[in-house]
């Protein structure tokens, strides 16, 4: 089978963050990590015919990017598509997931490789997600698993645990079982264990991963600053139907020509607190009036012309992580150096 490999601008050797806006492009044959993949595929009788690559910012935040990338893969004759491995990288993982999902939906068997914690995982279906491990030190193993999973796909089969496929049940998933003691008895035993310095638990606390803080900006007077909110502040009437809880969407609204968030023109649709005070003066949620003042006085170089908004109310951690990755990509592409996000 003819296989097309999707990778990002970094693994294609184009460059790092400074090249994250690189448009989708295609090269004949294997590139970078694709070489080892090509060798493993050749052993199974498959040919890696082309490599399609794209900058992470473009791939993860441009609506048409997955379709453009798929078109390049199809042009190259893809009969099977392999994306990644993206490891723990959010934008790259989302891009791999969307490209593989688009290919699969178009009838081209596809897989995307990434860490199970990658925010791209929920978007891989109907393609196959392969566990790559969380960092590039697992590259060798990841490529071996990807080639094995691809071989199964090529035969019309369904790759499984043996090929490192990420299952529906994550490590933190709960299963029902019958406990010999009642909840009250177990609670007392856990409390006693705790008093004795133990750390036993029946429910593991979620692991939110690690967020590497961005480097500080040198001087706010030279910076383009964005204001963002998860306070569900939307134009009056909520034209895009932002959810008031468990949001699956975020929106972008223009601030151009506005010096203040006027009451009656914006409203919060947040379902987790009383919005009366915020609606009386929406600057209490999104501090546009003072931000404009600081722009005029030169305390910041400029205010980003749009604000981004979602509803932070019972929002799934995976969804929120996803929004964060997309917001960061969008702001970086727009040349924003700092963001102030109000939280409710």
């Amino acid at each position: 089978m003819k296989v097309v490999h999707y990778i990002n601008q970094f693994f294609a050797g184009i460059g790092g963050e400074d090249k994250a806006s690189t448009l989708p492009a295609s090269r004949e044959g294997a590139v970078g990590p694709g070489r080892k993949l090509a060798a493993a595929l050749a052993a199974e009788g498959h040919e890696l015919v082309a490599t399609v690559y794209c900058g992470d910012d473009y791939a993860a935040s441009e609506r048409n990017a997955p379709a453009e990338i798929l078109a390049l893969a199809t042009e190259a004759g893809a009969e099977l598509l392999i994306a990644g491995p993206a490891f723990g990288s959010g934008r790259y993982g989302i891009a791999c997931a969307r490209v593989a999902a688009a290919a699969s939906a178009a009838g081209i068997p596809a897989l995307a490789a990434m860490d199970p914690s990658n925010p791209g995982v929920p978007e891989v279906a109907p393609a196959v997600a392969v566990n790559s491990g969380d960092a590039a030190r697992h590259m060798g193993d990841a490529l071996t698993k990807m080639a094995a999973a691809a071989a199964v796909l090529a035969k019309g089969g369904t790759p499984g645990e043996a090929e490192g496929v990420i299952g529906g049940a994550s490590a933190g998933a709960r299963r029902n079982s019958l406990a010999p003691l009642t909840a009250a008895q177990r609670a007392v035993l856990l409390a006693l264990s705790r008093l004795a310095g133990g750390k036993t638990t029946e429910i593991k606390l979620p692991d939110f991963g690690h967020v590497a803080p961005a480097a500080p900006i040198a001087d706010p007077r030279e910076a383009v600053v964005a204001i963002l909110t998860e306070g569900a502040l939307v134009p009056f009437g909520n034209p895009d139907r932002l959810e008031s809880a468990r949001a699956k969407h975020w929106f972008r609204y223009p601030l151009t020509g506005r010096d203040t968030m006027a009451a009656g023109e914006f409203q919060s649709v947040h379902g987790g607190f009383s919005t009366v005070v915020a609606n009386a003066d929406p600057n209490r949620l999104l501090p546009l009036d003072v931000a404009r003042e600081m722009e005029a006085s030169g305390e910041i170089k400029a205010l980003h012309p749009d604000y981004l908004v979602t509803a932070g109310n019972g929002t799934g951690v995976a969804d929120a992580t996803h929004f964060g990755v997309e917001w960061a990509a969008e702001l970086r592409r727009a040349g924003v150096q700092a963001a102030i996000l109000t939280a409710t």
Binding site: P220, F273, N283, V290
Partner: peptide, 27 residues
């Protein structure tokens, strides 16, 4: 929680000064 960039207990001028202080701190 309902007013991360304000304080409705203040008069409008003082509230705006508080909001400015928050943004200065954020910078």
């Amino acid at each position: 929680i309902p007013f991360p960039a304000g304080d409705p207990s203040l008069d409008p001028e003082a509230e705006r000064a508080w909001r400015r202080r928050l943004l200065e701190t954020a910078l």
